[in-house]
Amino acid sequence: MAKANIKMPEEFLLKVSRLADQTDVILPKVLEVGGEVVLDKVKGNLSKVVGKGTKYPSKSTGELLSSLGLSSAKQDRNGNFNVKVGFAEPRSDGESNAKLASIIEYGKHGQPAKPFLKPARNSSRKPCINAMVAKLEEEIEKI
């Protein structure tokens, strides 16, 4: 049986070792940069559809748009880091922001759907990945 020894450069091994020690610090930063890209796209899409194309004058207060936000990066029980784009609850009138967003996204009887989440997810995928890759490379260079 053939045997081969490959020696990695010492500098590379040290950098990889330091990177492993810093993943809990780097990953949240990278995910939050990607989340900001998605959040901006969702906000833009939501502002375009709220109150547009209705039979009656819009009663929009802007509360749904202002409640849209990004969570900080948190680690779940499986060890995966996650950020979430979502709506803060509850509204001042007692209704649920998630319910209103769902009605806008999927429609209801007598109200056509005005999707804003799914198009935002699809159109922000590549810019989000590019932003996260750039941030990761920036963080790796600091090591």
Rank of each mutant, 00 (worst) to 15 (best):
N97Q: 04
N97L: 06
N80M: 15
V33H: 03
G69I: 02
D40L: 15
G44C: 03
E139V: 00
Y56L: 12
G62Y: 10
V133N: 03
S96E: 12
P127K: 01
D24S: 10
K135E: 15
T61G: 06
Q111C: 04
L39T: 06
S124T: 10
Q111N: 14
Q111I: 15
K59Y: 06
L13S: 08
V25A: 08
L14N: 11
L65A: 12
G44F: 13
D76S: 06
R18H: 09
P112N: 08
R125C: 01
H109R: 13
E10P: 00
K118T: 11
K43W: 02
M8P: 03
N122R: 15
T54P: 07
P90G: 01
G53P: 03
A101P: 02
E105V: 13
F12G: 07
V33I: 11
V83D: 04
F12V: 11
Q22K: 14
M132C: 00
F87S: 02
A4D: 10
P115G: 12
N5R: 15
I129V: 14
E105G: 06
F81S: 01
H109A: 10
K55A: 13
L46P: 07
G62S: 04
K7M: 13
N80L: 15
R77I: 10
I6Q: 11
K29Q: 12
K55W: 10
A120R: 07
K29A: 08
H109M: 06
S102W: 13
S72F: 11
F81Q: 01
R91T: 02
D24G: 14
I103M: 13
K15A: 12
E139A: 07
G51I: 06
P127G: 08
V16C: 07
K74M: 09
E137H: 11
E11H: 13
K59M: 06
V49A: 09
V49N: 09
I140M: 06
A131V: 07
S67K: 06
V50S: 02
K55R: 13
L136E: 09
S124M: 11
A4V: 15
G53W: 05
P57D: 11
D93G: 08
A120V: 05
E141W: 02
K99C: 04
F116G: 02
L31W: 05
G51A: 08
K142S: 12
P112D: 13
G79R: 04
L136K: 02
D93H: 02
K108H: 01
G62P: 08
D24R: 05
A88V: 09
V38S: 00
N5F: 13
L64G: 03
N5H: 15
K55M: 06
P28D: 08
S92C: 01
L14D: 11
A98C: 04
A73T: 00
V42E: 05
P127T: 01
N97H: 15
A98N: 09
S67G: 05
G107Q: 07
P112T: 07
L64S: 05
K118D: 09
A98E: 12
E138Y: 09
P115L: 08
N130D: 11
M132P: 00
E10R: 13
L100M: 12
S92Q: 13
G35C: 12
K118N: 07
V38C: 04
G86E: 05
P9C: 04
N82C: 07
S67F: 01
P112H: 09
M8N: 10
K48H: 11
A131S: 14
E141P: 01
N78T: 14
V30W: 02
K126R: 12
D21H: 02
F81C: 03
D40W: 06
F116T: 03
